[in-house]
């Protein structure tokens, strides 16, 4: 079924909140309290809501420094592998360090949406 425009990435379904939502939908379907069609609709609403909310509502920010080890751009997806990363939260918040970080970033406007 073609979804109504605009369409949203499904990548947040793999986040903790997305996986928990899917587990809960599975449970409701298992108990026959929900149709899979409704679950599908809920997940597509989730795709939209989380994308829009992260874009519009989340204003917290951090900066990070590290050594860029690898980068690539394939099928409109940028991937960066960064080593020895230090994250600094805003307003003098805590500093977090990581040996390795992988950043996968997709175009906010999906292919074909551009003028």
């Amino acid at each position: 079924m073609a979804s109504g425009a605009p369409t949203f990435y499904e990548l947040y379904r793999r986040s903790s909140i997305g996986m928990t939502l899917t587990d809960m939908l599975d449970e409701l379907i298992g108990e026959q309290r929900m149709d899979p069609q409704l679950a599908m609709k809920i997940l597509s609403n989730f795709d939209r809501a989380i994308t829009e909310t992260l874009n519009d509502k989340v204003k917290a920010r951090l900066t990070f420094k590290g050594s860029l080890d690898t980068y690539r751009f394939c099928d409109e997806v940028w991937t960066f592998l960064i080593k020895n990363v230090t994250f600094k939260m805003e307003n003098g918040g805590q500093t977090v360090v990581a040996d390795k970080v992988k950043i996968v970033s997709c175009n906010a406007k999906r292919p074909g949406d551009a003028p």
Partner: peptide
């Protein structure tokens, strides 16, 4: 689980 659970990729 059955086809009812194939709603999510």
């Amino acid at each position: 689980r059955g086809s009812n659970f194939a709603y999510a990729s």
